[in-house]
């Protein structure tokens, strides 16, 4: 389940050197202690653990990454709060992005990552042919997917919610959407879910989150279905918006790994346990998703608790 997912893809962007390019070497400004921007993970990453040398088994995926000196992550550039590129710095910021940096630090000793912009349709292929080491991209764990990739985690649990223009009445559950025009992000999992829960709803789709918000404000539809966190963020930025009800789906996010690489999977699961125990996970959450959601960090879902993980 990819939140603001355009139709899209993968890639080792072929050009180098420019800030605009997808591959972003984050070493420079994400060094622990370097002033992190709001939502940047720099400060939190200072406390992130580094694996003991003994854990980097010879011949393992971890050793390969360590020797390369860089973790290659399949992710997004345009998912606010999760994995969004900051045009001013070229840095990719957010919950998923910072977890990727923390994992890089755990393996390499430094939070050096390269983000390969991927699309939901191609993540399995990217992992299978080794273009990326891991996928941090609101990657919902399902048994079907688990036949093609290995999932560490789940590391976070989220769900779809409904946003309306303030003052709209009569919409609080997905069933209320029947017979109404509903806005959704193109190629997001919201589309099949709406089709199932509200078969009479008319769905219109737009490329990205800002387009969807604008469309809702311009009354192109009466409701906007999207990942709850994103909706909360939108509603915070824009007082015209209001999130109604509670999430009506449960999407456990996993870290995508190459299918069959059990060694790497248990290594990543160990790392998840460590950062959840020492508060780094919670710190990263506070810096990103927590900046729009009130209250303390939620309890992370139990590792391996979902079919397919």
């Amino acid at each position: 389940m990819v939140s603001i997912k355009r139709v899209a893809v993968v890639a080792a962007v072929a050009m180098a050197g420019l800030t605009a390019c997808a591959g972003t070497d984050s070493a420079s400004s994400a060094v622990p202690g370097a002033a992190p921007g709001e939502g940047g993970g720099g400060g939190v990453l200072a406390g992130a653990p580094v694996a003991a040398a003994a854990d980097i088994l010879p011949g393992s995926t971890m050793e390969k990454i360590k020797q390369r000196g860089e973790l290659i992550v399949g992710g997004s550039l345009d998912a606010p709060l999760l994995s969004q590129q900051n045009p001013a710095t070229g840095e990719v910021e957010g919950f998923d992005a910072d977890l990727g940096k923390a994992l890089a630090k755990y393996i390499i000793g430094q939070p050096k990552v390269k983000i390969v912009n991927s699309a939901s349709e191609t993540r399995e292929a990217l992992l299978a042919n080794g273009t990326v080491d891991v996928v941090f991209q609101t990657y919902t764990i399902t048994p079907e997917r688990a036949e093609q990739v290995a999932f560490a985690g789940p590391y976070y649990s989220s769900g779809l919610s409904i946003a309306v223009k303030k003052g709209t009445t009569g919409i609080s559950t997905p069933q209320d959407l029947n017979g109404k025009t509903v806005i959704a992000g193109a190629n997001t999992p919201a589309i099949p879910v709406i089709q199932k829960l509200a078969p009479q709803a008319k769905i219109i789709t737009f490329g990205g989150d800002p387009e969807c918000v604008q469309a809702l404000k311009q009354d192109r539809g009466v409701a906007y279905v999207q990942d709850e966190t994103l909706l909360v963020a939108d509603a915070k930025k824009d007082p015209e918006l209001q999130v109604v009800g509670t999430p009506f789906t449960e999407d456990p996010y996993g870290i995508g790994l190459k299918h069959g690489d059990d060694q790497f999977k248990s290594f990543v699961n160990d790392w998840l346990k460590k950062i959840q125990a020492n508060g780094v996970w919670q710190g990263i959450w506070k810096n990103s998703l927590g900046s729009v959601v009130q209250g303390e960090a939620p309890t992370p879902p139990e590792i391996g608790s979902v079919p397919g993980s």
């Binding site: 490329g207 990205g208 800002p210």
Partner: peptide, 13 residues
Amino acid sequence: SGKVLANYNGLLI
């Protein structure tokens, strides 16, 4: 790039 920018600053138009 315009799309990423619009996502970042919310200034679509």
